[in-house]
Design a protein around this nucleic acid. Structure first.
Lengths: 264, 264
DNA sequence: ATCAACTCTA
DNA sequence: TAGAGTTGAT
């Protein structure tokens, strides 16, 4: 028996909106610890890791560890039917091949339940080692989103370079080049507007903007984003989910081939 | 000679927006009583009945009963040219085959007139008998609209069931099932937020969501909607138009075939 | 593939 | 408050 009650249902709605375009089907894993997911994107290039800790739920009952395979698009469709102020309860009976989403309006006048079939998914649960990163950038998530969107109108890839002075996002395309530099800046009115750079070693890595733009769908989940970079390691783009956990996106850097686009 | 002056011109704009997708051509009937329309939708499944009483107009002159055939899409196009605060006057000379819409801006600085050709339409004016309904539900129009929209992302038809406790909207589709229950609730701050159920007999009827979603285009006309149900009778979905009349949509229930989707 | 609705930004 | 872009539905 599984029963998870989340008062701030909009969180789950936002979480689904931020991964459903990246991943088609995935297993949600429930344990006493919390509700989590780990999945590769459909082209096996990026990885999403989600954690919603049990403490963040108003009620969390998970009698035994369970893995539920869901089509994320269908799940997102159903969650769209929940109001933003609704309380969302997720239920599954032992041995059942369905999951039920229950939505309660704040006034309790409207109660909706949506039942969805579960599916069997071959999951390849990767252990993600904790790593030391050469540089960690924390900045406003909206700013990062804007930069990725802007750069993708010029080129397909972004070079992220971190020095002590700041972080530089660069791209190059047929119509020209673009560079956006964000200086370290901790003297702002609100802490979430700060840009903070922790750097052990300068790094410069190239990534496909297509994926970055997909990751920034998680922007509504948090005011800030953390970008952790090391040469030879996948970048981690993390959005903290208040009181509950995080959503992390991993993406391997492109091996820079300067002449990739200019080959005959 | 016909001359109808409507100070709150936005009403007419909203009325047109709410029927133009359902009905292509229709006759508007003018008499001393008011301005009315009755028309079947293009696939002859649903029926719209509109009444704008003469008392609701600032000036209402209709020398003799007249029926004017109009293409509703074209009429809507012209009305879109009126500002939301404009005063709209509708004029037609006796024997003329055109109608003129005049729009006056609130400041009288702008006066526009649009002339449109009338058309001959075979109208089948159905007498709609007043009927006793097993159940009448009054609820916020926005909520009804939201429910129809949500359910149509899951299935094609909605089962509306009324009991003393409340009204249930259910659907079923490839990805799962959905139920939304609205409880009777008269203890709200504003009367237009109430959900009121008058029930003589429980009913449960099935309708095509496509039409329901078309009806809910009238939501801007009223804060509340009234749904009148009887077995074997078309449902009536009514939006009252303040001080003037109503727009009513009629839709025959689907005969429930439980095995419709499971036939070999 | 096209059209309409919603959200976010300027 | 208006426009544009994006997203979803038919």
């Amino acid at each position: 028996m599984l029963e998870l009650r989340l008062v701030q249902g909009s969180l789950l709605k936002k979480v689904m909106e931020s991964i459903k375009d990246l991943v088609n089907d995935a297993n949600f894993d429930c344990s006493a610890t919390g509700f989590s997911l780990q999945a590769m994107d459909s082209s096996h290039v990026a990885l999403v890791a989600l954690l919603l800790r049990s403490e963040g739920f108003e009620h969390y009952r998970c009698d035994r560890n369970i893995s539920m395979g869901m089509n994320l698009n269908n799940m997102a469709k159903m969650l769209k039917c929940a109001g933003n102020d609704d309380i969302i309860t997720l239920k599954a009976d032992d041995g059942s091949d369905t999951v039920t989403f229950m939505f309660e309006s704040p006034t309790q006048d409207k109660i909706a339940d949506f039942e969805m079939k579960l599916m069997d998914i071959d999951s390849e649960h990767l252990g993600i080692p904790e790593a030391e990163y050469h540089a960690i950038v924390r900045m406003p998530s909206s700013e990062f989103s804007r930069i990725c969107k802007d750069l993708s109108s010029i080129g397909d890839t972004v070079v992220i370079s971190v020095t002590k002075e700041g972080v530089r996002f660069s791209t190059r395309g047929d119509i020209g080049t673009a560079n956006v530099v964000c200086r370290q800046n901790t003297t702002v009115d609100k802490p979430e507007e700060a840009t903070i750079i922790e750097m052990n070693e300068p790094v410069s890595l190239t990534f496909a903007l297509r994926y970055m733009n997909s990751f920034t769908k998680a922007t509504p989940l948090s005011n800030t984003v953390t970008i952790s970079l090391s040469s030879e390691l996948p970048v981690v783009v993390e959005y903290k989910i208040a009181e509950m956990g995080y959503i992390r996106f991993y993406l391997a850097p492109k091996i820079e081939e300067d002449d990739e686009e200019t080959k005959p």
